[in-house]
Amino acid sequence: MNWDWNVVDDFMPRFWDGVLVTLQALAVGSLIAFALGLVWALAQRSARVWVRWPVVAVTEFIRNTPLLVQLFFLFYVVPNFGPSMSPLTTGIVGLGLHYSTYTAEVYRAGIDGVPAGQWEAATALSLSRGRTWRVVILPQAVRRVVPPLGNYVIAMLKDSPMIATIGAFDMLGEAQTFSNETFTTEALTVVGVAFIVIAYPASLLIRALERRLVR
């Protein structure tokens, strides 16, 4: 075993670049996942079969196929027909799209969890559809939805190194190129430890949030 702290020192500037890219991908990816997931969830509740069915089929398909292959698909196949995007953009879109199918389920369960009496009360008060959603249903659904959404952000963090495979310079991408240039492996270990250091406090935070929001 040979561990050289100098190598770690050399890697540090690049490591912080990688952390920034990872966090950036995570932030934008989460926003996409949260927004798109809500769209899927509402579409799945649609009364029209021709809206509901395709959305259910597409989300099931995306959820049951590997993110890695989806990234390859977005990066190598989609440019044949449509826009070609940079590795990082592709990665962010891929992460967001993949996780939107999970968040859709979270929203669905959160909305279904609002007691039927709340809907009936809104009808009895003759609130409009928009008002029912805005002031009655969604505020109650949100507190059930926040902790699981947080969990998916952590899960996304752990899947984010996959974007290195299509050439984005996140933590893993930086570590890989650094290791290849210097024939060392300390960088990989540093990144591995970094994941635990980021993910563990984050999961503690979400547990605390869960205790407060879900009674």
Partner: peptide, 11 residues
């Protein structure tokens, strides 16, 4: 649980 499977595999 905090570890990324891909990073672990690389490591």
């Amino acid at each position: 649980r905090g570890m990324s499977a891909l990073v672990l595999m690389f490591w």
